[in-house]
Design a protein around this nucleic acid. Structure first.
Length: 480
RNA sequence: GGCGCUAUGGUGUAAUUGGUUAACACGCUGCCCUCUCAAGGCAGAGAGUACGGGUUCGAUCCCCGUUAGCGCUACCA
């Protein structure tokens, strides 16, 4: 068997979405696992809807995911001559013909066909037009498209690596357009020629292309070239079981990146949509995914995208990652929020790594470090209402806290144990529960109702900041 | 409308190429731990495999039909 060569061929008519990312991932996993090549191709033949910005988005998203490509990106818009040349050959070989029907004519015919319950196909108006008439119309400047000249009997079948045998009767297949009136190739012409020229061995793509495959096989045959293997992937749906789209919320990969999701858990989650490993363990590293992936493990039914599970993978990864690994990501986040200080990279590097280890335990996204952890990085933070309502409602607190602050200030050594025993002793002395002081301190020190263990917080903040924050006057949340 | 594909708890998936009390993960509930929240530990609810027929000693698994969903039916990919 010649080398495995697969490709991901998005069209830049929108940002790379979750479904596309999953397709790219499966191609990439397959290539890496088989020692094959992963090729990137941009299908930008729709001049109206394609844009360079979207190409950038797609490349950026793939890079972020870590799906590196071995060849490309190739742009279809740079291969137009190739398509035209192929179309001419098809025309010459009587495997295609020029069609002069207007859009409105076609629409009317289609409607009539629908009404009579027939398959919707372009009728034969132009199919057998004599060459001299074609020439005559063209010199008259009539616009035309090139259509594939299909056969009207028999069937096309292929053995899908995932769906098994799929067959269509050729009479159901319309004479699809190969070249538009503006000279641009359509999707069908483009893919087939490119997959041929790029020596693609396995076409791995979404199941929305299953019904397109017979057309393309017909094209391969007309071109007298071998047909690659096909593997169609089940689709990813929204919670309402319709195809995932913007109205389901975030679908663009870059949105997840910007929200603080990490590529590894994101890929892990994506891989489990339609595929399952042989082992029962679902949390897998990218290397393990490569090692375990096989087309045989892919199932055939569409999957619903579950943000909760994605979130679980992400928080799990964050929790288990080293602070060193996380630092660059958190740095970017803090820079965005204006919370990054140069010292974090030098004199305070050890300190910030410690803080990261503290915070990563209960965070779900990278952005949580800047929000949940704000009070660690700056003295400018608000005490959120929730924390106030939950922990600052006892009327004795405004008296107790400054006194506690003074007590902590007098400590010669200020580490976790010292702070803890001082606070607990103070609580006993005042005959209040330690929890009352601890939680009030949580609100005052972090501004949050949810935070790491309070003595770890104190140790991380240091004596000076701890004392200052506990001494500050605050308003007590009145009950009712 | 035509053609194609699919169908296991709320979600993602498993289930020796027919034989299990239908398993695992997310989510959910309760308890433990405890300074909050997570994490962790423990316990639990939730599907009898869309529905109806077959084939078989025996069907989640094979066949047929129905229903539902999705896809294609564009000079979009």
């Amino acid at each position: 068997m010649p080398g495995v060569r697969v490709r991901f061929a998005p069209s830049p008519t929108g940002a790379l979405h979750v479904g596309g990312a999953r397709t790219a991932l499966f191609n990439w996993l397959f290539a890496r696992g088989q020692g094959g090549r992963f090729i990137l191709r941009i299908e930008d033949t729709d001049r109206e809807r394609s844009s360079p910005e979207m190409v950038d988005d797609i490349l950026g998203a793939l890079q972020w995911l870590g799906l590196d490509w071995d060849e490309g990106p190739f742009l279809q818009s740079e291969r137009l001559d190739r398509y035209r040349q192929a179309a001419d050959r098809l025309l010459d070989g009587n495997r295609a013909y020029r069609c002069f029907c207007s859009a409105s004519e076609l629409a009317a015919r289609r409607q009539a066909a629908a009404a009579s319950g027939k398959a919707l196909k372009c009728d034969d108006t132009c199919r057998e037009l004599p060459p001299d008439q074609v020439r005559e119309r063209r010199t008259r400047g009539l616009s035309s498209v090139v259509r594939f000249k299909g056969t009207r009997d028999g069937e096309v079948a292929f053995e899908d690596r995932i769906f098994g045998r799929i067959a269509h009767r050729t009479e159901q297949i319309e004479d699809f357009v190969l070249v538009r009136s503006d000279g641009m190739p359509t999707y069908h012409l483009g893919v087939v020629l490119d997959d041929l020229d790029m020596n693609i061995s396995h076409v791995i793509r979404g199941a929305d292309h299953i019904s397109n495959t017979p057309k393309q096989i017909l094209l391969y045959q007309a071109l007298e070239r071998p047909v690659p293997d096909f593997a169609h992937l089940p689709l990813i749906l929204g919670p309402d079981r319709t195809r995932l789209s913007k109205r389901h919320g975030a679908t663009a990969v870059t949105t997840y990146r910007d929200q603080g999701y990490l590529p590894d858990p994101f890929c892990n989650f994506l891989a489990l949509l339609g595929w399952s490993p042989k082992t029962e363990v679902e949390a897998l590293s990218t290397d393990e995914l490569i090692h375990q992936f096989s087309l045989k493990g892919v199932n055939r039914s569409n999957a619903v995208f579950d943000p909760d599970k994605l979130s679980w993978f992400n928080s799990r990864y964050l929790r288990n990652a080293s602070a060193e690994r996380l630092l660059p990501l958190i740095r970017a986040e803090l820079e965005r929020e204006g919370l990054w200080k140069e010292a974090f990279d030098s004199s305070e590097r050890a300190w910030i790594l410690k803080v990261i280890d503290l915070l990563k335990q209960r965070v779900r996204m990278v952005s949580d470090f800047a929000t949940q952890g704000r009070a660690f990085f700056t003295d400018e933070f608000e005490i959120e209402d929730k924390a106030r309502r939950k922990f600052l409602k006892n009327a004795t607190l405004p008296l107790l806290m400054p006194e506690l602050a003074a007590r902590l200030q007098s400590l010669p050594v200020f580490e976790l144990e010292e702070a803890e025993s001082a606070l607990r002793a103070f609580a006993a002395e005042k005959e209040v529960k330690a929890g009352l002081l601890i939680n009030a301190a949580r609100a005052l020190l972090t501004g949050k109702a949810i935070a790491p263990g309070i003595f770890e917080v104190m140790a991380a903040l240091g004596q000076e900041r701890t004392v200052a924050r506990l001494s500050e006057t605050f308003r007590v949340e009145s009950e009712g």
